[in-house]
Structures are given as structure tokens and as C-alpha cells.
Simulated scan of single mutants.
Amino acid sequence: MKLKHLLVCASLMTIGFGAQAAEPTFESVKDILTKNACLACHAVDKKVVGPAYQEVAEKRKGDPANAELLAQHIRQGSKDVYGPMPMPPNPGISDDDIKKVVEWIMAGASQ
């Protein structure tokens, strides 16, 4: 009977570990950023035309509501958020791709 319980517990632990999401990486969003021309104005760790992704991450960390705000900025564009240069809207990016990019930014925008 104890062996049966041990096997059940081991199975549940394996399932639990598999369910944990991996932290998003730059490699996981690089193709999205490239095909949507995001990297023309943004870099991970330095200001180009727009702010560095790490600057955005630092400004938005700690408040989960910022994820929705970032998604809106990506989809609809923004103005006067990080300076005078407006960010143009990106209506062609999919909701799934926006979600991946926002998760990466909210996780700290690591390289």
C-alpha cells in the first residue's frame, strides 16, 4: 500500500513540475520583435528611438495591471510615456504575440 502512495505522489510531483511556466527569454520573443519591426526602435538594454525594454520593465514592475497597459501601448501606440517621440500603433501583431512580449517585459526583459 505504501508503494502505491509513493508512486501516486511521484506522479503528481512530476505533473506539478511540468506545469510550471518557464521564464520568458529574449530568444523566445526575438522573432516576434523582428517580424513586427519592434527592434527598429527598441533594444533590450539601451535606448534607441524608444526606451530600452529593460527600462520599460523597470518602470512597470510590481503591478500586474501594467501588463494590460503595455499590451494597449503595443496595439494602439502611445504618446508622451517615455518622452516626446510617439510610439506608432501595431495593429498587425497577434494577441498571442503581444502576450508573449508583455510576459517577457514584465519578467524583466532579460537578454
Rank of each mutant, 00 (worst) to 15 (best):
G108H: 05
K4A: 15
K59A: 15
Q76R: 14
K100L: 06
G77Q: 09
A52V: 01
K2A: 08
D80E: 12
D80M: 12
G62I: 09
Y82S: 05
A52P: 06
P91G: 14
P86I: 01
S94Y: 04
I32P: 03
V101R: 05
C9I: 08
E58M: 12
D95S: 15
L70M: 11
D45Y: 05
M87H: 10
Y53T: 06
Q76F: 13
P89Q: 10
G62E: 01
G16C: 14
I15H: 10
V29A: 14
V8G: 08
V49C: 09
L33Y: 04
K100V: 08
R75F: 07
A67I: 02
I32Y: 07
G77S: 10
H42K: 11
V56T: 03
A43L: 04
P51Y: 02
C9S: 15
S110G: 14
A10L: 15
N66L: 00
C9Y: 12
I105K: 06
M1P: 07
P51D: 11
M106A: 14
L70Q: 06
A109K: 08
G108E: 00
Q20R: 15
E68K: 06
D96W: 10
C9E: 02
D97C: 12
V48A: 11
Q54F: 05
K79I: 08
T14C: 14
G92K: 15
K47G: 02
E27C: 06
T25H: 11
A107E: 04
F26I: 01
L6D: 00
E23Y: 10
P89F: 09
M106S: 14
M13K: 08
K2H: 03
F26D: 01
L7G: 06
Q72W: 03
Q111N: 02
K99T: 13
V81G: 07
E27D: 15
A21S: 15
R75N: 05
Q111W: 07
Y53C: 10
C9L: 13
S11L: 15
G108P: 06
K61N: 12
D63E: 13
N66Q: 00
G108I: 04
M87F: 01
A21P: 09
Q20Y: 14
A109R: 03
K35T: 08
V56M: 03
L12P: 03
S78D: 10
L39V: 03
K4M: 10
E58F: 01
P86W: 13
I32F: 03
D97I: 06
P91L: 15
S110Y: 00
D31H: 15
H42L: 01
T34D: 12
M1K: 12
K61C: 13
T25C: 05
A65T: 06
H73A: 02
T14M: 15
H42D: 03
A71K: 10
Q72G: 03
V48T: 14
